[in-house]
Design a protein around this nucleic acid. Structure first.
Lengths: 272, 272
DNA sequence: CATGTGAAG
DNA sequence: CTTCGCATG
């Protein structure tokens, strides 16, 4: 294991990069070089492998999995792992979504790690219907995954941009957003179901008090400077792994111009 | 007449701005404030009036005429004049092209000034057919214009991006461009006809020797730094006005990053 | 307000 | 290589 990681622990980060090409030019590469994470899940890569610079596509010391969307420039997830995956799977068995660059998972010893990019949705448009279809299908998949992983002696960690703030403490302006995609009652209830079904929100576990920590701030207006954010990026794990989480935090940039995405990395540390 | 202009002369500039909004941010506003021109013809404004900042739409001391295309973000011509026009006309009586933001003219005392943006064309595509249709219709209009203007006691000056280099001395790499739109034999012959029909190329009149002066350099490659340009922006005038032209030049930027368009202003000075 | 695409130049 | 429109976020 490379010396830069921490012995005895597993560190996992997830971040929606909002275009990996743009992020790479603005600081992602430096962040990648400095991080001590063992596994990194990316969302919204919005690139084909051929469009990526070598230091992004094949950074030294990392194994990379890319799952681009069949629609150019849209969605796309990736997983970077210092250890070589025992298996790689793209999609979750959905005819509609497996080519959409929204889900990939890898097997590591005793663990399945997934990168998820749930559709954003947009109330009153076909995007919201798409989000609902995805939620329904993915909910069933999570149940399936739990059983399969347990049978194989693996914990589960689904990291990504879930595009839903769960509770009032998960976004700054909850009152004005009750009818907006990302904080609809049915979306929140869907997350509640998942968290009551035996999956855990490891950041909230360690930070039961809000507000935040937020992981996304719109580029519009002064959202970042006002900390007018949303917590929509989660690391969702099976219970035993959750119980081994010793640290969890958002790597919020110090200033607006140090950002390389509208999301910040969310990182959790687990005892091995 | 404003003090910044030159007494006893009429100065006219023409420039393809390649997006007036972008140009305004990069230096067009400063150029406008500094110019001594009395009339300015713009092409490729690519904006609706509402999209323009006040200092561009209604600069102090200028009367402005905007002729946007009905296709958003495409083409568009404009005329800025320090004197109030006696009349304004958009289009040249063409069913196909009058809404396409490619022609506008104003009457000034003793003079008709027009801003023309001829289609660029692209060999082997419908764009080239469009260019040919435009050329045919516009050729007839020029004949008509000559007669009408003369009857009204006005000279004619048609300024703009004609998207055709006339002779070998009008582009750096004429050999490799003989089959490219903008230097096709039939396009060159069309310009020759116009110049032999009693319209004059005032810049070439004063600068019979080439190469150039070029007025456009592709953004691709190192065209500007290598002065690999084309002379496709012309001030085309009736003979009496042409005989009064005392100066004519291209305002080439000093360096690549001082440009605010891929074209440079072409300016001519006439004794009044 | 920002990232991509695609047409156009 | 650049502008702009549009879709998406």
């Amino acid at each position: 294991m490379p010396v830069v990681t921490l012995a005895g622990v597993l560190t996992v980060s997830t971040v929606n990069v909002n275009g990996l090409r743009a992020a790479a030019k603005k600081g992602f590469v430096e962040w990648l070089a400095a991080t001590r994470a063992d596994v990194i899940c990316l969302q919204e890569t919005r690139a084909e492998p051929e469009q990526l610079a070598p230091e992004v596509l094949e950074p030294a010391g990392w194994h990379t999995v890319l799952a681009p969307s069949s629609a150019k420039g849209r969605a796309g997830v990736a997983i970077y792992s210092r250890a070589e995956p025992e298996a790689v799977r793209i999609g979750f068995g959905s005819a509609e979504f497996d080519e959409s660059g929204r889900y990939a998972e890898i097997d590591l010893p005793g663990l399945v790690v997934a990168s998820l990019y749930l559709p954003s949705g947009d109330v009153g448009t076909p995007r919201q219907d798409e989000k609902e279809r995805f939620m329904k299908e993915f909910r069933a998949y999570l149940e399936d995954l739990r059983g399969r992983a347990a049978a194989a002696g693996r914990e589960v960690l689904v990291c990504g941009d879930w595009n839903i703030a769960h509770q009032q403490i998960d976004l700054k302006n909850w009152k004005s957003n009750q009818k907006e995609a990302g904080f609809l009652p049915e979306e929140r209830a869907w997350l509640t179901e998942i968290f009551e079904s035996g999956y855990e929100d490891v950041v909230r576990n360690l930070h039961p008090e809000g507000p935040g920590p937020y992981s996304w701030w719109s580029y519009r207006g002064k959202a970042f400077d006002n900390d007018s954010g949303w917590r929509i990026d989660y690391l969702v794990s099976s219970p035993d792994l959750a119980s081994r989480c010793t640290d969890a935090y958002v790597e919020r940039a110090e200033s607006y111009d140090q950002r390389w995405s509208d999301h910040a990395p969310v990182t959790a540390v687990f005892d091995r």
